[in-house]
Computed example of a mutant assay.
Amino acid sequence: MLHLAQSQAALAFLVLITPICAWVVFTDLKYMKIRNNAVYALLAVFAVAGPILMPFDLYAWRWVNALAIFALGYILNQIAHFGAGDAKFAAAAAPYFSTNSDHIMLMVMLLTAFLLAAFTAHRIARSIPALRAMAPDWVSWTRKDFPMGLALVGTLWAYLLILAISG
C-alpha cells in the first residue's frame, strides 16, 4: 500500500510541478536566470500538497533535504561559481527526493545523464543557425556558461516520472 501511495504522490507532484519546470527551462534558456518566483512556486507546491500526498513524518523530514542542499548550493556558489538560481532551484527540488540509498543512487545517475545530455544538446542546438534564428534573443546561445536549469529540471521531472510509473 505504501508503494502505491508513493507512486500516486509522485504522479500528483509531477502534474503540479510540470508548468513550473517548463517556466524554469524557458527562463534559463532565454535569460540564463532561474527566477525566485519559480523557486517559491516549487516550494509552495511541496508545502501545500506534501502533507496531503505523503505521511506527515516523511513530509516533515524532507524539509531537511532542502536545508542541506541550500547550504551546499550556497557553498558551491561562493567557491565554484555555481549559479545562485541553480542552487536555489536545487534546494527547492530537494524535498521531492527520498533519502533512501536506492533513490539517492537513482538521483545521481539521472543528474549525471541529464547534465551530459542537456549540455551536449544545448551546445549542438546553439551551433545550428536555423535553431538560433528561432530564438535569437536567448542569452544562453552566447554565454560560455551552461543553463544548468535544464539538467536540474530534467532530473526532478524524470525522478518523479520513474516513481509514478513504478507503482
Rank of each mutant, 00 (worst) to 15 (best):
V139N: 04
N37D: 08
A121R: 00
F26G: 00
L106N: 05
I17M: 14
Q8H: 13
L106Y: 07
I124S: 01
A44G: 01
A94M: 13
M54G: 05
A87R: 06
A49M: 02
I165S: 00
F13D: 11
L163Q: 12
D137K: 14
W138N: 00
N65T: 05
G73A: 07
A38N: 14
V139F: 12
A49S: 08
L131V: 07
F146K: 07
M54W: 07
H122T: 00
A47T: 10
L2K: 13
N65Y: 07
F56P: 05
M54P: 03
W138C: 00
M1N: 13
I104D: 12
L14S: 12
A93W: 02
A10H: 14
V139H: 11
G50Y: 01
Q6M: 15
A118Q: 02
P147R: 08
A9I: 04
A49T: 04
K144G: 05
L16P: 07
A151K: 01
G167W: 12
R143D: 14
L2I: 11
L76M: 15
M32K: 12
P95N: 14
A71M: 05
K33W: 13
T142A: 10
F82E: 03
M134Q: 15
R132I: 08
C21I: 08
L131M: 13
V15E: 11
P136A: 03
A22E: 05
A164K: 03
L58S: 10
M105R: 14
G50S: 03
Q78L: 14
A41T: 05
I124C: 06
D145E: 09
R35A: 12
Y96K: 06
T142H: 15
A68H: 03
A118V: 01
G149L: 02
W61D: 14
G149P: 06
S7L: 09
A47G: 13
G73D: 06
I69A: 11
Q8V: 15
A121T: 00
R62I: 03
A92R: 01
P95H: 02
L163G: 11
V39H: 01
R62M: 10
F114A: 01
P136T: 03
F114M: 10
A47D: 02
A9E: 08
M54I: 07
V64E: 05
